[in-house]
């Protein structure tokens, strides 16, 4: 078992702000690592360091056997970068964008053209190949971005929030593309704000907050620690919130949260839902809403750190 990416003690400051505060991680060759965290957690800074775009203030990282600072050029030869900040030229067509990158990577004009057409076909962009990228929809733009990072057939791919801002259908398409790449043996480091995305794609997940890794493990391990799903119960009469909270606490054996006339709790056992229904029925509590849904990142954070995610600049 070898690691395609190893990072040890990465630190990066922006003035007073510590974007990264000692991050360690390892990505096994051929696997997908999901880096999960809210806005401002340091995910993009981490990707930029691993992609040689930024030098760490301390710590080191080895990508594909090369040091990201001392052997940056060799690292660049193995990686593909797609993300919020690595983009295509909007004033060029799809084919021109890919042709440019092929030429920069040393392909002949003929080979670069063939590779461009092949990638555009793979990503359902053939019809738009000769249109300027600025006319593309959000989903098409992301697919072209991804295609651009694959021209050189990298063994390692960084996807920095590949589906942020995409509609659900485009998100599902993006997931399929990523799964196909993984099936071809590409190692993927994926950053995301969505627990579901990490759960769907990643073999292992690291959760980052304030520039630190606060939890790591397989999706199943994290779920068993944090509660994969959230149970929410809203009684018809808000006066019965206390009774509902007690019932939920008895079943899931944790202290539930009460906010906005809804009782919520993290659950790992699927039998919790029918149990709660039975007990509420016994207690003759009328319920306006009763749902079991995937935990949001906020809820995972709450159970991992005891604090909610903070929006940038706005105290929670």
């Amino acid at each position: 078992m070898t690691n395609a990416i190893v990072a040890e003690g990465l630190v990066k400051h922006y003035g007073e702000t510590k974007a990264l505060d000692g991050v360690d991680l390892a990505v096994r060759t051929g696997s997908v690592l999901g880096v999960l965290g809210p806005n401002g957690a340091g995910k993009t800074t981490l990707v930029r360091i691993l992609a040689t775009l930024l030098r760490p203030d301390a710590g080191r990282a080895v990508v594909g056997g090369f040091d990201v600072v001392r052997q940056a050029h060799s690292v660049r030869g193995q990686i593909g970068l797609t993300g919020q900040y690595a983009s295509v030229d909007e004033s060029l067509t799809g084919v021109e964008n890919l042709l440019m990158i092929g030429r920069l990577l040393g392909l002949s004009r003929k080979d670069a053209k063939a590779r461009a057409r092949e990638l555009l076909a793979n990503f359902s962009l053939s019809d738009a190949a000769d249109r300027a990228a600025k006319t593309y929809s959000g989903g098409m733009r992301r697919r072209l971005d991804l295609a651009a990072s694959l021209v050189g057939r990298p063994r390692l791919l960084y996807l920095d929030e590949p589906t942020t801002g995409l509609d659900p259908r485009a998100r599902l398409e993006m997931w399929d593309i990523v799964r196909n790449l993984v099936a071809d043996g590409v190692t993927v480091l994926l950053t995301t704000q969505y627990l579901e995305e990490a759960d769907q794609l990643a073999d292992e997940i690291v959760v980052v907050d304030h520039g630190k890794v606060i939890a790591s493990g397989t999706p199943a391990e994290l779920k068993s620690r944090t509660g994969a799903q959230t149970l929410a119960v809203r009684p018809v009469d808000p006066a019965e919130l206390e009774i509902v909270a007690k019932v939920v606490a008895d079943v899931v054996r944790t202290t539930p949260e009460i906010a906005d006339s809804v009782v919520t709790a993290q659950v790992t056992d699927p039998a919790a839902l029918p149990a709660v229904v039975r007990r509420l029925d016994d207690a003759e509590v009328a319920v306006a809403e009763l749902t079991l849904r995937t935990s949001t990142l906020d809820e995972v954070f709450l159970s991992l750190t005891g604090h909610r995610t903070e929006q940038e600049g706005v105290p929670a």
Binding site: S74, S87, D89, L105, A148
Partner: peptide
């Protein structure tokens, strides 16, 4: 435009 739209980052991640 290259700097703000991320085109430079893409170029700088290439072995050029």
């Amino acid at each position: 435009n290259d700097l703000t739209k991320g085109v430079f980052d893409r170029l700088r991640s290439l072995p050029i």
